[in-house]
Nucleic acid binder design. Structure first.
Lengths: 126, 126
DNA sequence: CAGAATCCGTTAGGATACTG
DNA sequence: CAGTATCCTAACGGATTCTG
C-alpha cells in the first residue's frame, strides 16, 4: 500500500465507489428516511412527523427512489379501512447499518469537537 | 435496545448526528476531495485533474469549507518560485477513513448488485 | 390517511473567461 | 500554477391546495 501505483488504483476505486454510493444515498433526505424506517417508522405521515422539515412532496419522491433501489418496499394492507400503507425496510436495508453507525458516530464527535460540549451518546449495538 | 423508548432515543440521536455529519461532508464533492487529498494529491490543479468533472470555482469553494472544518490545511511554500500551494490533510482528516471505507465498500457492492458484474475490489488495509 | 398537483424560490454547481 | 469573476440553469426542495 506504500507503492504509489496501488495507491492510485485505490484512490480511483474509492472515488468511483463513493460516487456510486452517493448516487443512491446522497442528498439531504435519503439516509434520514432510511434511519426512520429502520427504526420502526413505517407510515407516511409518521415518517413526515419524525423527519424534521421534510415535505410530503419530497418524502413521496424520495420513498419512490428508495423503493427503486431496493431499500424499502411499499406494502398496502387492503384488508383494512381506511387502507393502510406501510414502507418497510427490505433485507438489503440492513446493509446500511454500518454506514449510518459510522456517519452518526462521526457527526456526534464532530459536533462535540465544534461545540465543546457533548450530547448523550447512544452506543452502537452491533 | 428492544425497548421502544430507547429505540426512539437512538433514532433521534442518529437523525441528528447524521444531519451534523452531512452538513460538513455532504454535497457532491467534499468527500471526493478528501479522498484525493488523503491519497496524496495536494496541489490545486492536480486535484482538479484527479476529481472528474469538478470546476475550479467549485474546487476552490469546497476547499475553503473543508479548511474551515479542520480537514485540510492550506500550506504556501513561499520559498519557491513560482509559489507552491499545497492542501494537506490534517490529523483530523484521518477520522474520515472509516467513513470513506464503509461508503466505498457499500458503493462497490451496490454496483455489483445492480450490474451483476463486479469491479476489481481494492481491499481495505486498516 | 396517503399522497398528487401546482407553483415558485433558492442554490448548488457547470461553463467560460480572466488574472497575478 | 492557483485561483477569481461572471453568468447561467437545472435541480432541489418549500408552501399550499386538492383528492380518493
Amino acid at each position: 500500500m506504500e507503492n504509489p501505483d496501488s495507491r492510485e488504483v485505490k484512490c480511483t476505486a474509492q472515488l468511483s465507489a463513493v460516487e456510486d454510493a452517493m448516487y443512491v444515498l446522497g442528498g439531504k433526505w435519503k439516509l434520514r428516511i432510511m434511519i426512520a424506517v429502520v427504526n420502526g417508522h413505517h407510515r407516511f405521515n409518521e415518517l413526515q412527523r419524525r423527519i424534521n422539515g421534510i415535505s410530503a412532496r419530497v418524502l413521496s419522491t424520495e420513498l419512490k427512489s428508495l423503493e427503486l433501489n431496493g431499500l424499502v418496499t411499499r406494502a398496502v394492507k387492503a384488508d383494512q379501512t381506511p387502507v393502510v400503507v406501510e414502507y418497510l425496510p427490505t433485507e438489503y436495508a440492513a446493509t446500511l447499518k454500518e454506514i449510518v453507525a459510522v456517519l452518526s458516530d462521526w457527526g456526534s464527535s464532530h459536533k462535540r469537537r465544534i461545540t465543546g460540549k457533548g450530547e448523550a451518546l447512544v452506543a452502537r449495538e452491533d
